[in-house]
Structure formats: structure tokens, C-alpha cells
Computed example of a mutant assay.
Amino acid sequence: MNYRHAFHAGNHADVLKHIVISRIITLLTQKDTPIAYLDTHAGIGLYDLQASEASRTGEWLEGIKPLFDTPNPPALITPYIDIIKALNISNTLRYYPGSPTIAKVLMRPQDHIILNEKHPEDSLVLKKNFKHDGNTTIHCQDGWLLPKAVLPTKEKRIVVLIDPPFEQENELELCVKSLTESIKRMRQAIVIIWYPIKDQKTLNHFYNSLKQSNAPKLLKAELMIKPTDNDLGLNGSGMIIANPPWKLESELLSLLPFLTNVLTEDTGKWQINWLIEEVSTVTKK
């Protein structure tokens, strides 16, 4: 396992992923009952954009940087932006939160955070970053085993994030299996899958597999930075959300056009549609 998210922290895929996560947790915490958050491939939780890894790729310069510099962004992304501002003393953007940090800031004392990171070095950093958080449990094992190992939780509401490194050819298939296992154990679970958009043929098979899963409802949201018919690498990314909070679709219909304008050139586009319990399909260029 060689993937290190520090090279890609704050890129356009992170922006989409973390805005979706922040909106889901914000919606769930409007009710007093506790929630759990399970991150199967958690990373280290906090990234230095001026360190050698992020500086080498510079991906954050076309991701969080233009969004951070945008005046008067939509109120829906205020919780996300506020977390980033709190990590950076001045207006100079240096530190960027991973998914675990976003969850930690937005969740409450009665909530439970479960983090897993298999990479031995990164897991040590993750433990150090969360050593003072009493409501956080950290594992260091194969992330694909976590749903079976920890579900069901005592909390009746849970968010499961499946965000693997995509180093192996079968990881989209493993995502579907992990979602299926999570829903099998907690049918009401909100399960989120982040995935890269590279080869459309492979993704079509992924979509078809998801349509045959056991999810009661399945929403797909995608943000394309480049045309999907080229081989330039990460052309965009998508989020699969099982059992999305009922306001989430309308929020994303508002946010994705904004993100497309901020993060992409004329080639960018966005898409939202239901893979299960189809209500509407909207595509914009």
C-alpha cells in the first residue's frame, strides 16, 4: 500500500467530498439523538499544503485555493470554509482538514467517531492527531473489514465513508460489497462512496452493480473538471450516497453549479441522478 493522500490534499476531489460530508453531518446534527461516523480509509486527518508532498503536485492550487479565495460563497458551505479558516491563523492557506477533522469539528460530545487507517506511518500520525478526543476510536486494519467488524453501532444513526486509495483494479467492486455489508447490518445507514472519474466504461459497470445493491435509496453526484473521454488522469470525481438526508439533493443542486464555475474551465460539468428510487435526473454544462 503506497498511496499517501498528502500528495492530493485539497484538490478538487477533496473539495467535493468534504462539502458533501459537511452537509450530511450538519443536517444530521440538527436532531439531538447521537450519530456515529465511520471512516474506513481515514488518512491522517490534517495536511500541510506547504509540505513537500502537497507542494510537489500543487493540486490544491486548483482545488481549495480558488474556493478559499472566492468572496461570499454560498451559506451552505460556510461550515466547511469555517473549519479551514480556523486551521489557518491568517488568510494564508496552509493547513487543510481531512475527513476525520471535518467530522470531529461538526460532531458533538454525544456522537462517536470511528476511524481506520491501514498505512502504518499514517495510522500513527492519525492517532497522534486524535489522541485527546475521547469520543474517537481508531483502528489500524484492512478498511474493507470495518463495516463487518463494527456495525451495528449502539448509535441508531451512522454515516459510513468509503474512500479507498484506488490502487487495485477491484476497488470499485469492493466499494459495492462494503456498501452492501453496511446496509445489511444497518439498513438506515448513510453510506458514502467517493470514486475517481477516469474510465467511463469501468464506471458504467460500477453504476450497474450499485443499482443491484440492497440500498433503499442511492443518489449519485458527480463533478467533472475535464472531458471524460480523455486519458489525462483524474478528470473528475463522484459521490454515491445511500439513504441521503432528504434535503441533500436540493442542496447539491444548488452547490454543484457554483463549484463547477469556481473549479473548472469551460469543459467542466456536473450531474446528479438517482441510481435507486429515481426521482429526477439533472445534467448541466
Rank of each mutant, 00 (worst) to 15 (best):
L106F: 02
I83F: 02
D82F: 01
W60H: 11
E121Y: 05
K104R: 14
D82T: 10
L126N: 03
F130Y: 09
H119K: 10
I89M: 07
I84H: 00
E59N: 06
F130S: 07
K85Q: 15
P74Y: 00
R108E: 05
P73S: 07
N116T: 07
A75V: 13
P120A: 06
K131T: 09
P66T: 09
L115W: 08
N91A: 11
G98D: 12
A86G: 05
L67C: 09
V105Q: 12
P73N: 02
K85T: 15
I83W: 01
E121S: 11
N116K: 05
G58A: 06
S55M: 15
N88Q: 08
K104G: 00
P109Y: 04
T92W: 04
P71E: 11
P100T: 13
S123P: 04
N91W: 01
I114N: 02
S90V: 12
E62C: 13
R56H: 14
T78G: 01
T57P: 03
N116V: 08
P74V: 04
W60E: 01
V125F: 02
N72S: 15
L93I: 10
L67M: 13
Q110P: 07
G63Y: 00
L67N: 05
K131F: 08
L93T: 09
H112V: 13
P120T: 09
E121G: 11
D122G: 03
I102D: 00
K118R: 09
L106Q: 03
Y96L: 05
G58E: 04
K65E: 15
D69H: 03
A54E: 05
T57F: 07
Y95M: 14
I113C: 11
P79G: 09
R94A: 10
